[in-house]
Design a protein around this nucleic acid. Sequence first.
DNA 1: CTTTTGACAGCGT
DNA 2: CACGCTGCCAAAA
Length: 132
Amino acid sequence: MDLPAHQLPHLEYAEAVHGLARAIPSGRVLSYGDVAELLGSGGPRQVGRAMQQGPDGTPWWRVIRADGGMTGFLAAEAADHWELEQTPMRRGKVDMARARWHPAAGEWEFIEQLARQLASAKLSEENDGMIP
DNA sequence: CTTTTGACAGCGT
DNA sequence: CACGCTGCCAAAA
């Protein structure tokens, strides 16, 4: 699906993060840093900020800290989801070594598509701002 | 424009 | 293994 940039929807960073979060299968997780790296833009903190905006049924508990934990009061609720999804745990936290999501070939396509749309949106945004 | 802040990451103690 | 400090990147004030 290689549409020209001008046909792609203007994807906000947050939208890309949400999209990727939804692609994560049940029982699997990604760290904030992983998401940022897969999208090829921003950093862990930007991902966190994006998740906080979390508009709809975004599986926010599948995007967690690199140490397998979750911040604040969310930890309890997240742990509940992890148990329901049978996420590999280790000493009360997610076992990143086993639970980390390894996207399949088809998934990589989707991810690259997200990254590309994100890059395009960024560029067009730059251009819009630059044109006097 | 500068400063502050944050659902982080990594390394040191 | 648990804290603490520093580094990073963008968005919000």
